[in-house]
Amino acid sequence: MTEHRYSDAERSALYRAIYERRDMRHFLPDPVAPDILRRLFDAAHHAPSVGFMQPWRFIQITANDLRGQIHALVEQERRRTAKALNEREDDFMKLKVEGILDCAVVLVAALCDRREQAVFGRRTLPEMDLASLSCAIQNLWLAARAEGLGMGWVSLFEPEELKPLLAMPADSHPVAILCLGHVERFYDKPMLEEVRWAKRMPLDDLLFENRWNNPAANV
């Protein structure tokens, strides 16, 4: 056993947050305490980032009219997505895909401007700034679950339509609308699994050894 290993209770809490995290769509209107929100932002800000570029930016939406405009953009894209799904259009339109008007806190997670100046770790993989932001969002998500709060990631929007609403620089990029707040309960399974939209793939089907599609033997 390594001396750096956490205690059994600490490890159990970490894995519990991972396994019980859910992409939430149903929220209560109760406010989130400012000190808790600050802890969540701090957790996000301690995510790893390629070249330590820290590309994440979080915009908290506190104006109700702006929240309504964001919701309208999402609703517009929801209908476009439904049309693109063809035979699954009706099933998709029955899904609750966001909680923008219901949750206590709405955030827009974005990539910073002038990020083309960051070359360390991005010369051949420029998308690593997006990977870094995703790590920050995951940190926030897990911390929220540990605090008893739900969070939902909304990606149904056109970035170039959202940017002017938030006065974002031309070379910045919004990636996610995050709904955060108290919930009555957490879903027993991911919501899309509960409604049989999709199911979790077997882990062994995703683990390879030495070359593509060669099943890993000792994992």
Rank of each mutant, 00 (worst) to 15 (best):
W212A: 08
N86C: 11
Q138P: 02
A118Q: 09
R145K: 13
E184A: 04
A131T: 10
A167I: 06
S12A: 05
M93L: 15
L107I: 14
E10W: 01
D171I: 00
R145D: 01
L130A: 12
P126M: 05
E158F: 04
G181T: 02
L66W: 05
A109T: 13
T81V: 15
A72L: 04
N214T: 06
R38N: 03
G51H: 06
E194Q: 15
E147N: 03
L125A: 10
P55E: 06
M201S: 14
P126F: 04
H46S: 02
I137D: 04
S134E: 01
D171S: 09
M191E: 08
L207V: 12
E98D: 12
K94Y: 08
R16T: 05
L85I: 11
L165D: 03
R185K: 09
R39M: 11
K94E: 13
R114I: 00
P215M: 03
W141D: 00
L156R: 14
N86D: 15
D65R: 04
D35G: 10
C103D: 00
L14Y: 05
V175W: 13
P159Q: 04
Q69R: 11
N139T: 06
L95N: 07
V105Q: 05
A216C: 15
I18K: 08
H26G: 05
L133M: 05
L142W: 11
D171A: 06
E98T: 01
E77N: 07
G51Q: 02
L206Y: 10
P159C: 02
H182G: 01
A143D: 11
R21M: 00
D90F: 10
A146K: 00
S132Y: 01
R88W: 07
A136M: 13
L101P: 00
M191T: 06
E161Q: 12
P31Q: 08
A118C: 11
A110I: 08
